[in-house]
Design a protein around this nucleic acid. Structure first.
Lengths: 109, 109
DNA sequence: TTAATAGTTTACAAAACTATAAACAAATAA
DNA sequence: TTATTTGTTTATAGTTTTGTAAACTATTAA
């Protein structure tokens, strides 16, 4: 497989995390598998919209899904997804702190 | 800060990784800081396009940039960016292997 | 069988993203 | 100063993503 193809697929995986609702879903799934209706209640979006976002993440290999009777269950495909997501959160929080520091310094002068 | 806002900012950081060229750039910067023209030579895109993509990542706190004379230098803002990116790459590669296994099984039957 | 529940898929308009080209700005060289 | 190099910004057209609504499928209940 060419590097170019790897970059595309890698970007696709990252892109699958690049939406606020999908980040919220990843957060919900950190602890344990959840069923569709629970995620629906928790997030409060339209069911069609939720289904689409879950589908995006499942297709890119971020989530696993299984059906049990009438319910669909979703979970993180790998511990690594959770870890990567946590690292990105930390990068964000560190940047926010950095910005706060700069603002604080500006206020002092 | 509300959870909703955190999800948005977190998604923004992830989204900043969600493009093949930007993944390629992250790869280039793993080892060490690089200047604009080196990245330009390595990637072979238009300079305006490269500048835009570098700007996206810098604005979202993925990259740091500094100017030295005529040259601009870019580097990863944090070791955590590299680690998160590596984890996502591993998720991708594991998924690809999984798909290969399934294909292999199908061919056997 | 018929109705109800739980999700998924499709269609489509609005919004966001991307690549190209052209204009622009800053630093160095002539 | 004027020209050149290095990179940034802006404008724009084409593409992709997104949210809503409606149609659809599969499972369970009556």
């Amino acid at each position: 497989m060419t590097d170019k193809k790897i970059f595309e697929l890698h970007a696709d995986v990252c892109k699958a995390l690049g939406h606020p609702l999908r980040i919220e879903i990843i957060d919900l799934l950190q602890e344990k598998e959840q069923c569709f209706s629970d995620i629906l209640n928790e997030t409060g979006v339209l069911k069609s919209n939720l289904s689409q976002h879950l589908s995006v993440m499942t297709k890119k290999g971020i989530l696993k899904t299984r059906r049990d009777g009438q319910s669909s269950y979703f979970s993180l495909s790998s511990e690594k997804v959770a870890k990567a997501c946590l690292l990105m959160r930390e990068v964000l929080l560190e940047n926010l702190q950095e910005q706060q520091k700069i603002l604080h310094k500006l206020n002092k002068t």
